[in-house]
Amino acid sequence: MTKTDPESHKSFGLVKSEKEGGLTDTFGRKHNYLRISLTERCNLRCTYCMPADGVQLSPKSHIMTYEEIYTIAKKFVDMGVTKIRLTGGEPLIRKDTSRIIEKLASLPIQLTLTTNGVIVDKFIDLFKKHQITTLNISLDSLDAQKNKTITRRSYFDKVYQNILLLIKEGIQVKINCVLIKGFNDAEIIDFINLSKNLPVHVRFIEFMPFDGNRWNLEKLVSLEQILSRVQSSFKKEDIIKLEDAPNDTTKSYQIQGYQGTFAIISSVSNPFCDSCNRIRLTANGQLKNCLFSSKESDILTPLRAGESITPIIQKAIQSKLKIRSGMDTLDKFKKTETHANNRSMITIGG
């Protein structure tokens, strides 16, 4: 179709109409960022993500096909989404990930991934071909033995070398580090120093509660505690506060003279819900309007039945609560029973 085709004008008008209000919630937050989990499976077993005894996986027939992922993603793009992040589990272990990336790259979006980095070297040419220029890599310790303890696998050297390879190939690397008090919080400065000679962007993530990860408030390393460690290790004038992008989840900093940066994602101690623009789609086709919400909206079943998913998406956005699915105080948040009905992180999508 050309732009002079009357059917093209009709389609364009529909897209414009959907974009005007379809993904804006009752608090005026516009949701233009969709995170799609490709699989519930992973080649690691990180303690904060997966319960020790594993998870009950969805039957294969309940997992979205690559065609369904594309169809749903296109609908979201028609409604105003401009960025899509692929997650898991580990997205790169899905057999048709390359095909999914190729299909989604045809949409007018910024496409990126979050991965554990174990097999990322096999996909560099694919990333370059489809202009994926930024990747988030999960790495929770710079000590090989500690990394084995938290991931229950021995892949530290492979992941570290893959990070160096990505940098060499011109791909921007953001390192996601989940901090757990008494385990890896002593490595905060080591991670920051990693950014001295490497153009990496280290992001410290507060330990968050999900089903089966044995979260409690005593394990939290808060925004304030992280900054206190930084201020004790560097001169005040050398700690540069960077300007955060709109809708950013991070509070970003740089040490004077360092190539890279570091940031803090404070979902627990200092949430950023007022500017949230994120929606999550699980691998089995459930829409989550908040990471911490136990409520989900099934869009895969009606899609397979040939029904419109637009009203379901709109209702999910309109029902989004102002702060952390209603947990608007730390007292509410720290009650373990509050999170009992939410999924394990591995089945939500990182």
Rank of each mutant, 00 (worst) to 15 (best):
S232I: 09
L227H: 00
D211P: 00
L223K: 15
S228E: 14
Q231W: 09
K235C: 10
D211H: 13
F210A: 07
D238G: 02
A245R: 11
I226G: 00
L227A: 00
L223N: 15
S222L: 04
F234R: 02
K235V: 06
K235E: 14
K219L: 14
A245L: 11
F234A: 06
P246R: 07
N247G: 02
E224Y: 09
Q225T: 01
N213R: 08
S228N: 12
F210M: 07
E243D: 08
D211Y: 12
S222M: 04
F234E: 02
I239T: 02
N213H: 12
Q231G: 03
W215L: 06
S222K: 08
R229K: 15
E218W: 09
F234V: 01
D238E: 07
K241A: 03
D211K: 13
I239A: 00
S222V: 06
L223Q: 15
L223T: 12
N247Y: 05
E224M: 04
G212Y: 05
R229P: 04
K235W: 06
N213E: 11
R214D: 13
K235L: 12
R214P: 05
I239M: 01
D211Q: 13
N216E: 13
R214S: 14
R229E: 13
E218V: 07
A245W: 06
W215A: 06
V221W: 02
E243T: 03
F210K: 07
R214L: 14
Q225E: 07
K236N: 15
S228R: 11
D238C: 00
D211T: 09
E224C: 01
S233W: 11
W215F: 14
I240Y: 06
Q231K: 15
K236W: 10
E237R: 04
L227I: 01
S222P: 08
Q225G: 02
I240C: 05
E237L: 01
D238F: 00
L217F: 13
E243L: 06
L223S: 15
F210S: 02
R229Q: 15
E237W: 05
W215I: 05
K241M: 01
I226A: 03
A245Y: 08
N216K: 11
N216M: 08
I239S: 01
V221E: 06
I240P: 00
W215R: 08
D238P: 01
E243H: 02
E224S: 08
Q225P: 03
V221I: 14
G212P: 03
K235F: 12
E237C: 06
I226D: 00
Q225N: 07
F210G: 04
S233D: 14
V221C: 09
D238H: 04
E243C: 01
D244F: 02
G212Q: 03
F210E: 01
E224L: 06
A245S: 12
L223Y: 15
A245H: 10
E224Q: 10
I239H: 00
N216L: 08
D211N: 14
E218S: 15
E224V: 07
Q231T: 10
L242R: 01
R229M: 11
V221Y: 05
L242S: 04
Q231C: 10
Q225S: 06
L217V: 10
V230E: 02
L217G: 00
I226H: 01
K219A: 09
K219V: 09
A245M: 10
N213C: 10
D238A: 08
